[in-house]
Write a protein that binds this DNA or RNA. Structure first.
Lengths: 220, 220
DNA sequence: CCGCGACTGTCAGTCTTTTGTAAGCCACAG
DNA sequence: CTGTGGCTTACAAAAGACTGACAGTCGCGG
């Protein structure tokens, strides 16, 4: 398992390298965006840990370039606190997972393992749920290959739910993740959005857990 | 889940309170160090969110005093951006986790949950009791894998009992933990709630200790 | 530059579920 | 037997979620 760590902070990188090699990964590290991009583009890594705040070329750009060029290695994004909008951007840009700094190394190891496992089964930025497929790169959801066209907001919602399947997501959490921080406290925007997605993908895709929130329906 | 928020900035406190209560915590707030210390010392909170810059008595001091006095409630420290020294000090003083301002409420919620779980010696989000399983992520209680659907209040009650199994929980304690502060003293809401849970999960799940309170039944 | 259509958020109305209250009954401890 | 504490049931109020209509915004083509 060959892993590339793209991180410019020496201390963090060091910690990661130690833990990951101990966990059985073969680790390499780069600290500037240009080099990271180049190596990720020309070499075969099983996974890449990508810090967004890289010098010379920022992480998100690097990621987008890789994806556009058809590079499918699983990417785990490290994002700084207080920049949670980046998460959504990152995921839309084709990241497979993200972790917020400061993090527990343990968590990185676990998630990397999961990513690699998943990637071996199905190497792409596509995630299947039920009869649907969500493609992060093209920002499309298809049913048996036929694209349903979701609007940007609708896609964000589905994307978020899919990335957190098996968990109940409260309306507040949805609001915070798919809208920009200045959200109205009493607004039924989420409910309306959910209704719109249901109208397109079918009522059962999103399950309502009254008083708790929403979750992907059974079988998705 | 009873949480104390020690924060003097009204805006931040307000945000936190809203989010945390929506996340199912029962929230109370104090803004000056003296009072915070006193309440944390004399009352039972499931977790405490502690801002370091409190008036009258600074957060670190408060924390140190609690720990010296043997108070073990999990404490999540809020610290200003980039104050690494504070972080170290805080951890040495006995903090369980810390979050840097400005933060995203979602993270606070997640970390608090993690803290509470860890504090109860439960690593995962699933807790088994008898033939039942309580899953914090899906907000479900299942019997042999079959989900019983509990309403939010019912879930809170079961959750609280499970997290404190082996102990008798008084009605007052239940009231304090699953309702927000402004509760009527003479109300049989708890009794009704208990009855409702029993109707769903079976009479034996919750045992009545006449005059004292309730506890999980034998074998749970 | 204007008008049109797509996209989103807001609002008001309605329906459903949840929750607290009240009142009377039951049962256990003394 | 008696009284307190707990249980049950029914009811009404509150909360939560859904719907359809509407209006502001934005981008595009004419």
């Amino acid at each position: 398992m060959r892993v590339l760590i793209a991180e410019d902070d020496d201390r963090i990188a060091e910690t990661l390298m130690v833990s990951l090699s101990r966990a059985g990964f073969s680790v390499e590290r780069e600290s500037d965006g240009e080099t990271v991009w180049f190596r990720g583009d020309s070499e075969a890594f099983d996974a890449i840990v990508l810090d967004l705040g890289l010098p010379q070329l920022d992480g998100l750009t690097v990621l987008k370039r890789w994806r556009r060029a058809g590079r499918t290695a699983p990417v785990l994004i490290l994002t700084a606190r207080g920049q949670w909008e980046e998460r959504v951007d990152g995921i839309e840009a084709g990241a497979d997972d993200y972790v917020v700094k400061p993090f527990h190394v343990q968590e990185i190891v676990a998630r990397l393992r999961a990513l690699v496992r998943r990637a071996n089964g199905l190497a792409s930025s596509r995630i299947a749920f039920g009869k649907y497929t969500l493609d992060l790169r093209t920002k499309e959801v298809s049913a048996d290959g036929v694209p349903m066209d979701l609007t940007p907001q609708e896609f964000k919602l589905v994307s978020y739910l899919v990335h957190h399947r098996g968990r109940v997501i409260s309306q507040l959490e949805i609001t915070e993740h798919i809208y920009n921080q200045d959200y109205e406290r009493d607004s039924n925007a989420v409910e309306v959005l959910v209704a719109r997605v249901r109208k397109r993908l079918g009522t059962d895709v999103i399950k309502t857990r009254r008083g708790f929130g929403y979750a992907l329906g059974d079988g998705y």
